[in-house]
Each structure stands twice: as C-alpha cells, then as structure tokens.
C-alpha cells in the first residue's frame, strides 16, 4: 500500500511538473499502477538526437525499497543496453538503487546514460567494441542509423 500511495504521488508530480527527458510517463492503465510506460526523447547534439524510445517499467510490490525494472521496448543501439532484450545495465537499477529515487528521476538517469555510455561493461558488445577501438565515426553512424530506423512512432 505504501508503494501504491507513493506511485500516485509520483504520477501527480509528473503530471504537474513534467520531465524534460520524456514525452510521456504513466501507468499503462488506471487499474495497473504497478506497470508503467514511458517514452524517452533523444539527447540533442548527440547521435541519439531525434530518437524516441518506449520504455517498459515494472514496479515491484516493495517499491521504493527495490528498484523498478526498466526495459527498452524498441531497439536502441547503446553499449550498455542489450540490443535484443532492451535490458539496461545501470548500477542505479541494480546495486546502487536508493529509496529516494522516483521513477521520473530514474528515467532521467537512463537518459543521461545515453550520452555517458560505459563501453567497458557492455551489454551490446559490438557497438562497445567500436567505441573501444576509437572508431567514433563508425559508432555514431551506427547509432544514428538505429535511432532513425527504430524510432518509436506508435501511440
């Protein structure tokens, strides 16, 4: 119940004070408060510029003590995101979770991950390899290609 109450507050908070990194955030339906979705914008000035990604957010029943599970639905080419499953490798979502983070704040962290990738602990080895070999041009071209071709258009 504590989690429900808090999620309601977070929802209200987001609706009155939206997050710049997102175009939408909310539960999938009025009855399903533990399952949210979000649509994230790309970062201007980066290869991800103009992108739109749908995210699937599963909130555990002991939230906020445990982190939400966040996944990319449409594909994103990023060293720390699994290309096929959309799993995100971010310490914030695992060991370094803290109860004071809100869903909106967590998604901001995911948004920041777009521009501060960590090729040394990759989930997408191929793009990480390009980065590690210093082939920035190639890596960014690949990212741009997928950002454009996999853009989330659905509503």
């Amino acid at each position: 119940m504590a989690s429900t109450k808090r999620l309601l507050k977070e929802l209200q908070d987001y609706q009155r004070d939206p997050n710049d990194a997102l175009t939408e955030l909310g539960p999938v339906s009025d009855d399903e408060l533990m399952h949210w979705t979000a649509v994230m914008k790309g970062v201007n000035g980066s290869p991800y510029e103009g992108g739109r990604w749908k995210l699937d957010i599963r909130v555990p029943s002991n939230y906020p003590l445990a982190p939400p599970e966040i996944k990319f639905i449409n594909r994103i080419c990023h060293p720390n995101v699994n290309f096929k499953t959309g799993e995100i490798c971010l310490d914030l979502l695992k060991n370094n979770w803290s109860a004071i983070y809100t869903l909106s704040a967590t998604l901001t962290a995911v948004h920041q991950l777009l521009t501060s990738a960590e090729p040394d602990s990759p989930l997408n080895i191929d793009i990480a390899a390009l980065f590690r070999q210093g082939d920035i041009v190639g890596a960014e071209a690949l990212i741009r290609f997928y950002t454009e071709s996999e853009r989330w258009e659905g509503r």
């Binding site: 390899a129 390009l130 070999q133």
Partner: peptide
C-alpha cells in the same frame, strides 16, 4: 552489421561481462 571486427565479439562473450557489469557509475 559490425562484421568488420568479428574476433572481438567472438572472444568476449557477453556472459563474461553481464554479471560483472552493474558498475556503470553515473559519476564515471
């Protein structure tokens, strides 16, 4: 897509990285 460098992807299977990986620190 990135066939250009197959040796790396074959020699570093993802299973090696995934379990150790959650240390992407935001502060870097």
């Amino acid at each position: 897509e990135v066939d250009a460098n197959p040796p790396i992807s074959s020699q570093q299977p993802s299973s090696q990285f995934v379990p150790i990986s959650p240390n992407v620190d935001m502060s870097r």
